[in-house]
């Protein structure tokens, strides 16, 4: 490997890294919000909305992100809505992630035994107090590992953004290889930057899991 080539590539990879991180985390934030709303709809069995959510979840969990991005990026302009590649990336990742987050959060909510509800009600709590003080904190604790796994998965999924010409890490690496044939250096930097992006998330995830799970499950 040529040290000089690597040095000259680093700024390009740095820009790509920042773009990837930005779109990745905006997408994840959208996914999380969407997941909470949809999981609540499923948990409270809100008529009609419940069916819509189920269709959405199944549709987005069972199609690849690449296909979803193509639909948004090339499909929307066909019906007169044009959005930038960046917005497309955020929305695409958010919709895919939302379907996964919905299932993680819903399973946490449904894992709480009925007796918890009954004992809270028998203490005179209203449904609102029950949900806020008893169900939600426990459900969150149970959901955390799933949510962390989703975050890592979604950050890695950003690698298909290159298909809609977003200059993310993958795009940059492929571009440089095509231009200069420095395959080794480009791939080396690609791996390094992905690790830099994901390792802290993974470590933070483990830390949070330990922290929130202590109360209910111990060490």
């Amino acid at each position: 490997m040529d040290q000089e080539v690597i040095n000259s590539y680093i700024p390009l990879f740095k820009d790509a890294f920042l773009l990837t991180v930005k779109i990745g985390w905006l997408g994840i934030a959208l996914a999380f919000l969407l997941g909470i709303v949809c999981a609540f709809i499923l948990y409270f069995k809100i008529p009609v909305a419940k069916t819509v959510v189920r269709c959405y979840v199944e549709l987005f969990r069972n199609t690849p992100l690449l296909v979803q991005l193509f639909f948004i990026y090339y499909g929307l302009p066909a019906v007169g809505i044009s959005i930038s590649a960046e917005v497309c990336g955020v929305v695409g990742l958010g919709l895919l992630g939302g379907s996964y987050m919905t299932e993680s959060i819903r399973s946490g909510l449904e894992a709480i035994p009925v007796i918890q509800t009954e004992s809270a009600l028998s203490l005179g709590m209203t449904n609102g107090q029950l949900f806020k003080n008893v169900i939600l904190p426990q459900a969150f604790t149970i959901s955390v590992p799933g949510i962390v796994a989703n975050v890592i998965f979604l950050l890695k999924e950003t690698s298909v953004f290159s298909a809609i010409s977003l200059m993310d890490l993958m795009f940059t690496a492929k571009d440089l290889i095509g231009l200069y044939y420095n395959t080794m250096e480009s791939l080396f930097l690609l791996v390094i930057f992905y690790v830099i992006m994901l390792l802290p998330v993974s470590l933070a995830g483990t830390f949070i899991e330990k922290k929130v799970r202590f109360k209910m499950f111990g060490d």
Binding site: Q116, S119, A120, V134, Q138, K215, M216
Partner: peptide, 12 residues
């Protein structure tokens, strides 16, 4: 007031 058979304390 009600006390149930299964231990129903709030685990969190």
């Amino acid at each position: 007031g009600m006390v149930f058979q299964s231990y129903d304390l709030f685990p969190h």
